[in-house]
């Protein structure tokens, strides 16, 4: 057997507490790097504001608030995509995937840490986005905020996995949107439905289902995506 298979590296690592500690360490590292370099967050915030400005001109007068709410979700999805193209930038540029894979942390902890870090960026951008939406277009309700939170979890869970796939590909930035968009159709359905339709509950429940299923499968398969 290959060397990789022989090295589990899971001996005496403190169980769940140790696992969560690793996740916190790795996610903290990503937030610290972003705080220093300020590469991603300002770009995402500017992008979402620019997109909304475009929408103002793309929505003719007489367009409903419902159309604007649909547009908001396009903006959020594309902003998330922009952020996700940078998810593994620190690892990719410095060959750090090797560094993390060599270390004895469980591979899924690397994924979970990336999900958490990306969630923080996306949530911060959405505060900006929702404020702008409320100023420019229409009222922001509780259902919408709940939908944003649930949709973010799904997008980041799937996004952190497919972004890792994209780092192995020669096409990288080109292929990430192609990987993520078909997978995010259900998220858009749930999120837009919860924002514009009556009967918010079933849409939120659907989003929660999506989050649970895709998080579980991403968590279980990440190790195969990054290692041989």
């Amino acid at each position: 057997m290959s060397a990789a298979a022989g090295m589990s590296g899971r001996r005496g690592r403190g169980g769940l507490v140790g696992y969560l500690g690793d996740v916190a360490t790795l996610a903290g590292k990503d937030l610290r790097i972003e705080w220093r370099a300020r590469d991603t967050f300002p770009a995402m915030a500017l992008f979402v504001l620019s997109t909304m400005t475009i929408f103002h001109f793309a929505l003719p007068s007489g367009s409903s608030d419902r159309a604007a709410q649909g547009m908001l979700w396009v903006a959020i999805l594309f902003t998330a995509l922009l952020g996700l193209t940078r998810t593994y930038a620190p690892e990719r540029e410095q060959g750090m995937f090797d560094g993390l894979l060599l270390s004895p942390v469980d591979r899924s902890a690397i994924w979970l840490a990336k999900v958490l870090a990306t969630l923080v960026f996306l949530a911060a951008v959405e505060v900006v986005a929702l404020l702008a939406f409320w100023l420019f277009f229409a009222h922001v309700g509780g259902a919408m905020i709940a939908a944003v939170v649930l949709a973010d979890i799904g997008l980041c869970a799937v996004g952190a996995l497919v972004a890792a796939m994209a780092t192995a590909s020669r096409s990288r930035e080109l292929i990430l949107p192609l990987l993520l968009l078909p997978l995010s159709v259900p998220v858009v359905v749930g999120a837009v439905g919860a924002s514009v339709d009556t009967g918010t509950g079933k849409y939120l429940a659907f989003l929660a289902l999506y989050d649970a299923i895709f998080s579980l499968i991403a968590w279980g398969t990440f190790e195969y995506v990054v290692a041989e």
Binding site: M1, G6, P90, G95, L102
Partner: peptide
């Protein structure tokens, strides 16, 4: 076949890349 009789935490590897984050300090 290749057998390496150590766990991941008993292995130290130095490659062409330093495997350090450029935006962090040596201490970090």
């Amino acid at each position: 076949e290749l057998e390496v009789g150590v766990e991941r935490d008993e292995l130290g590897y130095l490659g062409h890349e330093p495997l350090l984050y450029r935006e962090l300090t040596a201490l970090e």
